[in-house]
């Protein structure tokens, strides 16, 4: 068998470079899959299709890391509306102001040099 053209991670990064939060879906079982993989967990299904999230979610858990050097920063887990969870951070507000249940929306973290883009979140205006 020839090698796979592109790794799941590379496809995910390609979506991010287009400003998209990509995730996988297994049609045979209606199963959302994240983090991206080559086969679906539990079923082993190979037919995983890529979809683009609307980028909306809810903070599921949150912490503020206090590094020895530098300012404290937020790390959180976000439940995306389409049915998967990922680690990220909420920006534009103080790290301790991030609360469980907060509605957030995705944007791509700006690239610095060779660093791969990654998703970050900001509070949804007007949400409860």
């Amino acid at each position: 068998m020839p090698n796979a053209d592109e790794s799941p991670l590379a496809t995910y990064i390609a979506h991010l470079k287009r400003g998209e939060l990509g995730y996988q879906f297994s049609p045979s079982t209606n199963q959302v899959v994240f983090y991206p993989r080559l086969i679906a967990p539990k079923t082993g299904a190979r037919e995983l299709e890529w979809r683009v999230s609307k980028g909306l979610g809810t903070v599921h858990a949150t912490t503020v890391v206090h590094p020895r050097q530098g300012d404290p920063y937020n790390v959180c887990l976000v439940d995306i509306d389409e049915g998967f969870r990922l680690m990220s951070r909420v920006e534009d507000i103080p790290p301790a102001a991030v609360k469980i249940g907060m509605r957030v929306k995705f944007r791509v973290h700006a690239l610095e040099g060779d660093e791969d883009p990654y998703p970050v979140f900001t509070p949804v205006e007007g949400a409860r």
């Binding site: 599921h60 858990a61 959180c76 887990l77 791969d116 990654y118």
Partner: peptide, 22 residues
């Protein structure tokens, strides 16, 4: 871990901290 390391969680403490917040 490309899906976690970029966010610099201080592991394992941050993992337990996230669970504690929940």
């Amino acid at each position: 871990n490309p899906y976690e390391t970029p966010f610099r969680p201080f592991l394992p403490a941050s993992a337990y901290a996230l669970a504690a917040s929940r």
